[in-house]
Amino acid sequence: MKLGLRLTLPAQVLVLFISVFPLLMQLYISLTDWSPLSGAPWPRAWEFWNSFANYTDIPGDRRLWAALGRTLLVMVICVPVEFLLGLGLGLLFVEDFPGKKLAYSILIMPMMVVPAVAGYMFFMLFQSGGPVNDLLSVFGPVTIAWLSDPWLALVAVMVADIWQWTPLMFLILLAGLVGVPQDQLRAATLLGASPWQRFRTITLPRMKVIITIALAIRAIEAFKIFDTLYIMTGGGPGVATETISVYFYKITTNDLIWGYVAALALFILVSLSIAAQFAMKRMAR
């Protein structure tokens, strides 16, 4: 066998192993009522055949659509906020100033904190007797029960996400900003462009690709949001902060309705693939 093929073989095997087998298994299970508690090993899941019942259940799954809506809400709030904050910070870091390297090293720290640990940090911060309320109480005594209020819990979760992932935007966008040719910015200045005009006509168009990449990466990750959120709220109170991943986790480990989970997983995979194809085509243009 050729060396090139031999070199790529292990990776190909792993990719097949994680895509083809699971897909086939999922397809099989998704057509049954099988669960780990069924008393039969999974190869015998056909004994619990229920044809397409799992799929027809999806449209009526209110908890699913609520979770999806919440996931999208987190996405459309957090990603733009992170983008704007990251861009603002990036613009501050284009010019040199004393202590820049140290400030940079500190500012990118949050994204390297283990997400579960970050979740725990914010769990502590948002305790009713915790530092957030303590800081807010300069305006008067505050005892907000952040994590047990449905909407405030979601806010707290988003704050944690923004804290952890703004540095990523900052890091990527700064790399892009630094790459904008200085001479072009100076030329624009000498032609009378204001800072805002320079930003709009030179910086932004030059950063288009980078901005797209940064937004895409963050949007994908935000869609999968689990660790911080689950540690902070466990999806609660009730189901108030349940996102797609949390919902999946719960019906997998608590409800154990694996046939339905498999159907749902396939549904999500197919939807995401279509969305990705669509997005790629638009990006290519």
Binding site: D183, R186, A187, L190, S194
Partner: peptide, 13 residues
Amino acid sequence: ARRGVGFVFQNYA
């Protein structure tokens, strides 16, 4: 920006 100077850069920018 307000000096009214035309500038041609080495790489033309």
